[in-house]
Nucleic acid binder design. Structure first.
Lengths: 157, 157
DNA sequence: TTGACTTGTTAGATTCGTCTAATCATATCA
DNA sequence: TGATATGATTAGACGAATCTAACAAGTCAA
């Protein structure tokens, strides 16, 4: 299951999947707004994705994903969501920055690393109190800049 | 302190810094081997970096970093090292994959996220036993695929 | 049903990063 | 000291992804 799309094409697929999820249909203009590119760039990307069998697009009409395109888009979105959750829930990164970073890192992370990160989130956040103590302490550390005494004691105890 | 270099140029700077660190000098051929590109690509990149004042390069001669080039390279390397440590020491990713992923993600991570990740590693690994119990349990979880009973008990206790 | 507005497409330029093929410079050693 | 191998550069092409400008199609309402 190699990654056969470029970062840019993955972005298009991801955006189309989101738009189709929201309003049932995607249009060139919406895609262009979602990605911050001009419409001709979208047209040209759609032609490529269409030839690759990932997108269905009738001239001057709606845009949709094929089954295969949807599969790829889901995969990208899973990477994005996982990274976003890690960044915001573990590293405590501000929501907007976390989205931006997830958006760029989603194209760089390998599937091996992704699966490990998924398990990490599962492991850490399936904790009965949702957030284990060490994570609460880490977030305190982030704000206060020094290891909480309580934590040091606990550790050495 | 915005990121003003492309991913590709950052890779060149990083490679040059490493080569200079090892053998005191860098040559076009070594850079090309280190990055897996052909020599003309290196020559062309060096011209650009040279014009940007990041690299010193005399025709047919050695390649070195300017003070500014070194500053940028250090920054890239810091990102790489941080990501590598996180991937291998926390997510338990195989060394080779961790290097590859760090190599790609280093261009995508923001400085905000980076600093939080640095603090995360500090926090987790400054633990008296080097590795806190939860991390040991996580690694067990990775291998065995289910939450160790011991951990569940501890958590609920 | 015909303007006028919105949306989409085409054509063509640009930038970036790479490549191959050909040429040029340097170093080595017989 | 010159022939040859190695290393470096130039020239030119290519693909990816974007843009602007100009044109075409679709929509809606008076």
């Amino acid at each position: 299951m190699e990654r056969e799309q470029t970062a840019s094409m993955e972005d298009y697929l991801e955006a189309i999947a989101h738009l189709c999820g929201e309003s049932k249909v995607a249009r060139v203009k919406h895609i262009s707004q979602a990605l911050g590119v001009k419409m001709p760039s979208v047209t040209s990307a759609l032609r490529k994705l269409s030839e690759g069998g990932l997108v269905e697009h009738e001239r001057y009409g709606y845009v949709g994903l094929t089954a295969e395109g949807d599969r790829v888009a889901r995969d990208v979105i899973r990477r994005h969501e996982t990274l976003y959750r890690f960044l915001s829930e573990i590293l405590n990164i501000d929501s907007e920055v976390a989205q931006e970073d997830a958006c760029k890192m989603e194209h760089a992370i390998s599937s091996v690393t992704l699966e490990s990160m998924v398990k990490f989130l599962e492991f850490v956040l399936s904790h009965p109190q949702r957030e284990p103590t060490w994570l609460k302490n880490f977030k305190r550390y982030l704000e206060q800049g020094e290891l909480p005494q309580e934590c040091l004691e606990r550790c050495v105890r």
